[in-house]
């Protein structure tokens, strides 16, 4: 999950390998994509939630995403953020953490961030939030294998 245009769907497609079903969330026109990830003998359902800015819903997309989180109690949420705009993206991370949802933070678009000369102290961020953090550039496939490893490790090793 994450705000619009941060590369969620690219990551989703990578994890599911394209085994995807897209359907409207019941009673809405908001589309939710679901897919299966099968890796290292583990099979997981992956959900690509509509882009949201906050867990306090204003738009139909936000309403649907929150309902998904509320009713399906995910084993792990992967919060994908635009690394360039970390400051603006963190409030949603806070809300996921406050809700008590297990979270893996993915700083995406690292290629663009690096081009701007930005660097990140991953362990400091992990300490500040108390969750694992991964750097990725999903467009180039960077960081995605590691993301898959961590997801499997977290969910299967629970």
């Amino acid at each position: 999950m994450g705000s619009p245009n941060v590369g969620k769907s690219v990551i989703f497609n990578y994890l599911t390998g394209g085994r995807v079903q897209v359907a409207n969330y019941p009673g809405t026109t908001v589309e939710v994509a679901r897919g299966k990830m099968i890796w290292a003998g583990v099979s997981l359902e992956i959900v690509d939630t509509p882009g949201i800015y906050s867990l306090l819903p204003i738009t139909a997309e936000e309403q649907v995403t929150r309902r998904l989180l509320w009713t399906e109690k995910p084993a792990l949420t992967v919060h994908v953020v635009d690394a360039k705009n970390l400051e603006r993206m963190l409030p949603l991370s806070f809300q996921i953490l406050e809700a008590g949802l297990p979270m893996l933070l993915t700083l995406n678009m690292m290629d663009e961030a690096r081009r701007l000369g930005l660097s990140f102290n991953v362990s400091a961020l992990e300490r500040a939030l108390g969750v694992e953090v991964i750097l990725a550039a999903s467009i180039r496939g960077e960081g995605l294998p590691e993301l898959r490893e961590r997801v499997i490790k977290y969910v299967a090793g629970l």
């Binding site: 360039k84 970390l86 400051e87 603006r88 993206m89 963190l90 409030p91 806070f94 809300q95 701007l116 000369g117 930005l118 660097s119 990140f120 102290n121 991953v122 400091a124 961020l125 500040a128 939030l129």
Partner: peptide, 22 residues
């Protein structure tokens, strides 16, 4: 609430980013 989150996000981002925000 939004302001408190904004401030905290600003603090964390500044602390972990190698270069101050753009």
């Amino acid at each position: 609430i939004a302001l408190a989150r904004h401030r905290k996000a600003q603090r964390i981002a500044q602390a972990v980013m190698g270069k101050p925000l753009v």
